[in-house]
Computed example of a mutant assay.
Amino acid sequence: MKKLYLKDVARELNVSKTAVSLVLNGKGDENKISYDTQQKIINFAKKHNYIPNQLARGLSRGKSETIGLIIPNISDTFYSKVAGVIERKAKEKGYTVLFSSSYEDPKTEGELILSMLNRQVDGLIIASTQQNKKEIEFLKKEKFPFVLFDRYYPENETDYVIVDNFYGTKKVTEHLLNLGRKKVGFITLKPGLEPIAQRLMGYKEALKAHNLTSKETYVKEIGREEYFSEVEKAIIDLTAREQAVDAIVFSTHYLASQGLRVLKKLNLKVPDDVAIVSFDELSAFDIVEPPVTSVVQPVNEIGYSVIEILLNKIGSTVKTEFQTRVLKTKLEIRSSCGSFLST
């Protein structure tokens, strides 16, 4: 019997390939595909032995020399840098990279994974929202080559490349403490992503190592969508209180960037009034006044590692062990921390 492909099913039923893909992956209802159309597609698939779990397997048989890259936001400097490295390295190996942004939306990410499969990419690289376990399990079951980076699923064994978020934040917090800063605040995102959780743990561990108690009032967790206004509220609270902080650790570069704007607006001097440090950095952090101390992520090594692992998966015909890499960060010390404070 001739093997059916997605385009064959779509043509025979006079529906779109997208509709076929969504229905066979159990997403017909949420995408408002009519009951009659769903039944027509499902019945045809069963009759011709074209079942949902065969979708990715059928798509991955050919070689398209393309790789799908799904990231939270291509405009984010960290992800755009990593994407650039991945694109250059992939090109050296004869591959083209298809870029897409999920904008931190799990539904969008799931749809992008399906869309990439429909485009018959040879493999996927994903910085996940960590809320699409079902899709990740599907890719694993179908033995479709993919690698996670920056974010991963701790409870789910996969190939991934991350940095040591815990140690990076612990080290930069300890730097502040070693300079005599004892009241260190922490401005971060609300819980949900593993890297953010690890950075908070690193901050708390640094305080513990210096026999300091982590004060809940010193930790400000803010929403990603509202961070412009919430960073200002957080800084006002941390600096206007009677026991004002003498330093602030920002868990991301864009929180730190907004923090600089707020501190200038409030006429607070860095580092005289408050020292600041950032996990990850912007290219301007070394030229603003004062330059900002940052935890630098190894962008090139991340991109190289991801491509190496993925291409090994694509080129392998036998089952291989999952590869996991936890890369070291670098502390770039600049003058936003000030000098040693006498106590």
Rank of each mutant, 00 (worst) to 15 (best):
L148M: 09
E226A: 12
P195L: 02
P291A: 07
K40C: 01
Y304P: 10
A209P: 00
K143W: 10
M116W: 09
E226Q: 14
F186A: 01
Y95M: 07
S101G: 03
F99D: 01
K141H: 12
K313D: 09
A247P: 06
I236P: 11
N43M: 08
V292Q: 02
M116D: 03
R119W: 05
L268Q: 09
Q130D: 13
F228C: 10
N53W: 11
E221M: 14
S80L: 03
K107G: 06
R11S: 14
Y254E: 11
P291D: 02
G62N: 15
S316G: 06
N25D: 08
V184D: 00
F322G: 05
S278N: 04
N25M: 12
D122P: 03
K91Y: 12
Q39D: 10
Q258C: 09
S16H: 04
N178H: 10
S316C: 00
F228Y: 13
F78V: 05
E30M: 13
R151H: 12
L139V: 07
I126L: 04
E289H: 09
T217M: 06
I248Q: 06
L148T: 06
K269V: 13
S283R: 10
Y203D: 00
D280I: 02
S342E: 14
S229L: 13
P290A: 02
E281Q: 10
